[in-house]
Design a binder for these strands. Structure first.
Length: 347
DNA sequence: AAGGCGGGGCA
DNA sequence: TGCCCAGCCTT
């Protein structure tokens, strides 16, 4: 028995009963697909029901006030989906209320991309076009042991091609439902229970114990911006203060000036009102000035640190200070070294 | 090609 | 608490 038939057999036994599976009405199917973009069935189900109830036809949706649509969408997230949904409803109504009945025409609807067009075309009109969503990437990459990243053009092409070949030409609707349902409830992203999987013996990932590694997704290392406002303490005897970083994050165990972490640039007023600043300076009177109006940008693989240096001249000594010479002897990170070298040159 | 868009589930 | 999820539109 081939893969597609096996999948359909599994689906027949294991499928959930969902309202949009009991209809061929393209409007309802479209509604469900848009609601389920980036959304779990469990979360989307009540929204589907309320939309069907409030807007039983595409005309109802097209003619509703936008606020009403958004209100119904409230809490579901990705709100442009709701606006696009209504825009598309208007597109359809403008076209004599003729619902697009094929993949190509469906793609013209606002908010309908390749996945959604394939889903509607196959479910409502029986068109032979394979859906490729996150479930499909996951299932195919594991069963076929494909390690091509799913989020690069070559990977997209490869998976689409395979999905097209596997599509059951006689019943594309059921096949498409089946592979996505399989991904949603059996071949789940994390810790799938392979002990009850019907594809154990022909799943390459399972056989080679690579289930955890697949699908491969290129991490676009999202760089996080950090804003560090370093407090460069200067006592009358030219002592300063360093703190040692803890061992759990970047620059573990290295020394640096104490700093305030913020969401961006800060005004002097904001600095001196910080609890951390007050605790550090204690009863001293001080004069503060910013050393660099433009932050020093320090890039790490996953962090972009915007470093501001505030020179705090105190009129009395503090505890736990150290001389510049001792400070220069401490292990510091590159950013700190750059600053210290420039700030204390010749001292 | 890359960034932005939101919630919930889960380790 | 922070990471992960993976469709579509915009730039």
């Amino acid at each position: 028995m081939n893969f597609s038939q096996q999948l359909i057999d599994w689906y027949t036994v294991n499928k959930r009963s969902l309202p949009w599976r009991d209809t061929k009405n393209p409007y309802f199917i479209w509604l469900s697909e848009v609601i389920l973009q980036q959304t779990r069935v469990q979360q989307g189900l009540p929204y589907y029901k309320s939309f069907v109830k409030k807007f039983p036809s595409v005309e109802n949706l097209a003619h509703a006030p936008q606020d009403e649509v958004l209100k119904l969408w409230q809490g579901l997230g990705y709100y442009s989906r709701a606006r696009n949904l209504q825009t598309a409803a208007m597109q359809i109504v403008d076209n004599n209320s003729k619902f697009p009945d094929n993949y190509k025409d469906l793609l013209q609807l606002k908010g309908v991309g390749e996945y959604t067009a394939a889903a509607i075309a196959s479910f409502a009109f029986g068109e032979s076009v394979a859906v490729v969503d996150g479930n499909v990437y996951r299932v195919l990459s594991r069963i076929y042991g494909i390690a091509t990243p799913i989020n690069v053009p070559a990977g997209v092409k490869e998976f689409k091609s395979l999905a097209g070949k596997l599509l059951d030409q006689h019943d594309p609707a059921t096949y498409n439902q089946a592979i996505m349902e399989f991904g949603a409830i059996q071949c789940v992203p994390k810790s799938p229970d392979c002990s009850v999987c019907p594809f154990q013996s022909n799943c390459i990932a399972y056989q080679e114990q690579r289930v955890k590694e697949l699908p491969v997704k290129l991490k676009k290392t999202k760089v996080k911006n950090l804003f560090h406002h370093y407090l460069v303490i200067q006592t009358p005897s030219k002592k300063t203060v360093l703190h040692q970083r803890d061992n759990s994050s970047i620059w573990a165990g290295l020394f640096e000036f104490p700093y305030i972490e913020a969401q961006g640039a800060l005004l002097p007023q904001e600095i001196i009102e910080e609890k951390f600043f007050k605790e550090l300076v204690g009863e001293s009177r001080f004069r503060e000035s910013v050393y660099n109006q433009q932050p020093i940008i320090h890039k790490l693989s996953h962090r972009k640190v915007h470093a501001y240096f505030w020179i705090i001249e105190l009129d009395q000594e503090l505890n736990d200070t150290l001389s510049i010479e001792d400070a220069r002897a401490k292990p510091v990170h590159v950013l700190m070294e750059r600053f210290m070298k420039e700030f204390w040159q010749g001292k």
